[in-house]
Amino acid sequence: MHTETVHITPYRAHAWVLIALLALTFVTITVTWIDLSALTVAIALLIASVKAYIVLTNFMHLKFESSLFRVFVGMVLAIYVLVILFTLSDYLFR
């Protein structure tokens, strides 16, 4: 049952990922200095999501796992987003 090929990520790849994440952190801090009012949250969340995506795919190795794992992660996130949306259907329309 243990026949799948092992994927070894080179150190350099991890280093690049780290640099990308640090850069995005820098961007998200810089953006808060500019006043974009309502957009600020959206941009902060967007950048955080990109960072999360990078962590999930690279550090957490999802890129190289079987597609089942990716399907599950997608399903869980979709369910969570739906939970938020359905809850908001109460709060946004009161």
Partner: peptide, 11 residues
């Protein structure tokens, strides 16, 4: 419980 009408029909 005082939910919005929208939420009530959706649920």
């Amino acid at each position: 419980s005082g939910m919005s009408a929208t939420a009530r029909w959706i649920f």
